[in-house]
Design a protein around this nucleic acid. Structure first.
Lengths: 233, 233
DNA sequence: CGTACCGTTGAGTGTCATCAAGCTATGTGG
DNA sequence: CCACATAGCTTGATGACACTCAACGGTACG
């Protein structure tokens, strides 16, 4: 079905088979009616910080980063977003971040004003949006803890674990994790320099925890020890 | 009126006189009917990480911190919360943080199940909750940027600016800012050690930017230079 | 007035940022 | 198809800064 979807962990404990919030076909259809499917190439800027926020976006396929330009000229990454993620919620009618495609991406572009009307009409659907934003808030808080770590290797390990958690890979012996973003994006996300990320990557590999098959594909060799490092906050 | 309230910045640009979302008397009344007003002393633990989440809380007066215990025994503070803030939104029926009163606090305790019913029934009210959570998400992202700074003095300056932004003080010459939390709480929030916070405080004072009247009350002496330091990311 | 607790100050060490130089992949045009 | 250019990545040396450990000072409370 070619219609927006999203996924979130609910507030409440629900039946074991439904511990993820998803949209019903009807809800997706409703959203489809106010949305346009858009394909964008890698590096395409989707919107800029400060621009009027006409649209909200849902990702169907691909990867997006959001960031803010700091006075010093550096870029602080706010988030990486993937399939079923939502972005573009603004403040006072203006976007607070810049959003840019990391890899080729397929989006659903929803009119903010129409979405507002729809959400105010359909409280059940809105509740799912509320769950999604709450979910993202928790993710953001987790990341803040992540970034508070001192050691570069530990931070990168957490990042790899984070990315691995997304891709619900078959329980393979040595799962591969895709890192579509550049080293400098990872650095911006982790609050490190590009060089430190590179060194940390080398170190994780030297210690036998992971192996970088390519720059954008890492294989987890020793999941238990990696997990131990991740937990060693 | 003794009823829960909240405040948030809306998504959309609205009339100049309404750039803050607040609850209508009727909405507050509805919330009052499913809430209990609770007074708690400083340091009281409101709920613990992992506990069943029966309640959501809205702060009437006072200050609360939320934190997570890390494996190492350290505490990573997730947020400080004040009047009109909301907390206790959980994941799968369990709280993800521990919440503790920093100062004596007056809360509204809302039954999560009853609130869920109410929000699904009243889409306009729910929309305000959605705006509030989105607002907190943005705050969380800002804070992540803050914590990414390298220099301790800059981080503390940002923290003071953050606290100052809350208290919409009359445009006084040298505004006072209340810091009800302990140094080690600030340290936990900023990702620094207690000692570094202390040294940073000394340095800001030495540079003539602020003056610590008491440990919990700081006076801003040179707002422009403080702002410059804050912006020097 | 005494006792904790919180906060400040000091000395030394380790880690990451910075600066700088090479290296590798990717894509383009001859 | 290959030379070349460019951006992205890796590696190395150095210095600044925050953490750690440790001792001292101040404040609140009984």
């Amino acid at each position: 079905m070619l219609a927006p979807s999203l996924r979130a962990i609910p507030f409440l404990k629900t039946a074991a088979d439904a511990n993820l919030i998803t949209l019903t076909p009807h809800e997706r259809q409703q959203l489809m009616q106010i949305s346009t499917r858009v394909r964008l190439p890698a590096r395409k800027v989707i919107y800029r910080e400060g621009a009027d926020s006409e649209w909200v976006f849902a990702i169907d396929e691909g990867a997006v980063k959001t960031y803010r330009e700091l006075p010093s000229g550096k870029r602080a990454l706010s988030a990486f977003l993937f399939t079923n993620d939502l972005f573009g919620l603004a403040e006072q009618g203006r976007y607070v971040n810049t959003a840019q495609a990391v890899a080729p991406v397929t989006l659903y572009r929803l009119s903010l004003s129409q979405l507002t009307v729809l959400l105010k009409h359909d409280a059940e659907l809105q509740f799912k949006f509320l769950a999604k934003v709450t979910h993202e808030l928790r993710e953001s808080q987790r990341r803040t803890i992540l970034v508070n770590r001192r050691d570069a290797a530990g931070r990168l390990a957490m990042f790899i674990a984070l990315m691995a958690a997304r891709t619900c890979h078959s329980a393979r012996r040595h799962p591969e994790v895709s890192l579509p973003m550049s080293r400098s994006d990872i650095a911006g996300f982790l609050g490190l320099t590009l060089e430190s990320v590179s060194r940390a990557a080398t170190e994780l590999q030297r210690r036998g925890l992971v192996k970088f098959e390519t720059r954008h594909l890492v294989r987890i060799l020793d999941a238990p020890r990696l997990a131990k490092l991740v937990a060693a906050v």
